[in-house]
Design a protein around this nucleic acid. Structure first.
Lengths: 344, 344
DNA sequence: ATGAAAGCGCTAACAA
DNA sequence: TTGTTAGCGCTTTCAT
């Protein structure tokens, strides 16, 4: 690795002042073609790459926006990032992505790093409950949160509660009383909102809550598989599944197929690839992460233009993808192996 | 947005020298607890965030590695990035991701930006054919390419050609002579290697090549759907499908289901979620992007430790996921509507 | 059209 | 233990 050339080296090699080099690399037109040519040759010769760090130190503002997500290896987040890129790039803004691994400490680090990089603004999508550490940033750079509302910040959220309620209602309407929620992670704000909806529906129908039906699951997609097996091994197993998020949904569905348990009614919060092609097709509440990203970026741009704006919370719509799985009816008790009960 | 506080402001507020502030924010232990406390209070009060740009300008090296991918919204790439993050974060390295949208010009921009940010090194995963612009970087920072070999650089690749050959052989062995390759994009190096394998197998078996069976498809996943329909509408439609990549594979399979054409034999280059759960289950050549990322990062670390290393090309293994779809046999000609031929 | 010099926020000698 | 000073690579006045 040779010593890296700086603007001075280029200037010396081209026998011009550093200012002329600066003009060339910034595309300023008032440079004699001959000089420009000399400079360009020197740049090529020395493999010169302008140091953005120095540039943004001087100018005080880079041309990047930051995005923080929990896990890039999750279609929800990658689609969200995609929407942001699709809009940022044409504006000449680069997007830099950092992920947290669902770890609040890492979220803080990422934010610190971005703030220190002179990013123009940040879109913050991790869905942890904690958010006290955000406070200082409010005054130093535009921040838009996704799927998590934090007082004083712009946010884009989904009405998880209502959508989840409607979904669980449908399962109840198909005759189910033992409904498991698979994929619940108590660290995640959206998961808690969806759980509340689930419980409220059951209570409204006089169905007893059973915590065993809502196993805590970590974010690894394999975890959901184990949770499914545990839940099916219960004395009074569920006849329907409410899947807490798309990430886990795909692996639960795969696990169901492996176990040959496609008799279960299923509703997924979050649509996923091939949900429509498996047998039976899986009904889903679709929250479009691409749309969430687009809305968040739009808001960021607004705030960039006018930092004095009052923070707002935008709500993105969900759509119900009605397919087959949620209409599967509960088995008549006679079809099940008799389970011992107190009331026997 | 208030004026952002700098180290000087903090020093003034805490009534200490800037060096003391520097010590505090860098966790140097030789600071009197009382002073440290004063500084920390000032930091909190002013919402001070250290400027990483200035820091890395001074020290000459940041603590980030860069990753460039074509599209973050593609499980292949997001899984690759994930592997890199999983290894970098524990080492105290942050990962910054940029994507190209399959655009060579944007790839150059991203690389320039990363090089200008003082990243320690870069993993370059875009799979375009072009790579002349890489040359200058060889001497200024460690670069490892994935799925694209470039002379003079380390790379991690998959033996696309052999794996694709074996796969297409299987299709031929099931009696197919009209085999379409869906998802081909001529701009992509891997696609070209896979196409060569496909053609070589057909030629080896005396099966005529038909360019109509290899429609050019852009990277949007919807594009594959149209390509499938076109190919099925040919006078002599294919009885088997060789899917060029996982991205398109999932949408082609979905389209097949919509069209009710699950009678086609299918083999996918690249495994995808639920491939095993659809009916019939889809056979795939699995190239593990997570593994590719892990290998690439490993090599980057080696080169960071010793920049004088000779470039090497590591080949990652593929695995054949034998499921049902590739065993579907060609329909007997009698079952097809008779197609007019020259030879009548 | 070109150049000289100052300074962005920070760290690293070196001094005290 | 703490402070002073120089300078990282660049852009930006302000001259020329």
């Amino acid at each position: 690795m040779q010593e890296r050339a700086g603007i001075k080296d280029v200037a010396a090699a081209a026998n011009v002042s550093i200012k002329t080099v600066s003009r060339v690399i910034n595309g300023v037109s008032t440079v004699e073609p001959a000089m420009r040519k000399r400079v360009e040759e020197a740049i090529a010769l020395l493999n010169y790459v302008p140091n953005t760090a120095a540039r943004s130190l001087k100018t005080g503002a880079g041309n990047t926006v930051g995005v923080v997500v929990d896990s890039i290896d999750d279609v929800f987040f990658s689609s969200l990032v995609s929407a942001i890129e699709d809009r940022a790039i044409p504006m000449g803004l680069a997007v830099i992505v950092g992920s947290t691994g669902f770890d609040a400490a890492r979220e803080r680090d990422q934010l610190l790093r971005l703030a220190g990089q002179n990013v123009r603004g940040v879109i913050l999508a991790p869905v942890g409950e904690e958010h006290d550490f955000l406070e200082p940033y409010r005054s130093i750079m535009p921040v838009v949160t996704v799927d998590r509302s934090v007082p004083g910040f712009d946010s884009v959220t989904v009405d998880d509660y209502s959508a989840a309620r409607e979904g669980v209602e449908l399962l109840v309407a198909s005759g189910h009383r033992r409904i498991a929620m698979v994929g619940f992670d108590s660290r995640i704000q959206t998961a808690n909102r969806r759980r509340r909806a689930y419980e409220d529906v059951l209570v409204a129908h006089g169905i007893p809550l059973d915590p065993q039906l809502v196993p805590e699951v970590s974010f690894e997609s394999e975890a959901a598989r184990g949770a499914l097996q545990n839940v099916l091994a219960l004395e009074e197993p569920p006849t329907a599944l409410f899947l807490a998020n798309a990430r886990h949904a795909a692996s639960v569905v795969a696990a169901m197929h492996h176990l040959g348990r496609t008799d279960l009614a299923v509703l997924s919060f979050g649509d996923f690839s091939l949900a429509d092609s498996v047998q039976p097709s899986i009904s889903a509440i679709d929250q479009d992460p691409y749309l969430l990203g687009a809305l968040a970026f739009e808001r960021l741009v607004e705030r960039l233009a006018d930092p004095t704006l009052e923070p707002v919370d935008r709500t993105a719509p969900t759509e119900f993808r009605s397919r087959v799985s949620h209409t599967i009816r509960a088995l008549a008790p006679a079809d099940r192996a008799p389970a011992p009960t107190e009331r026997g």
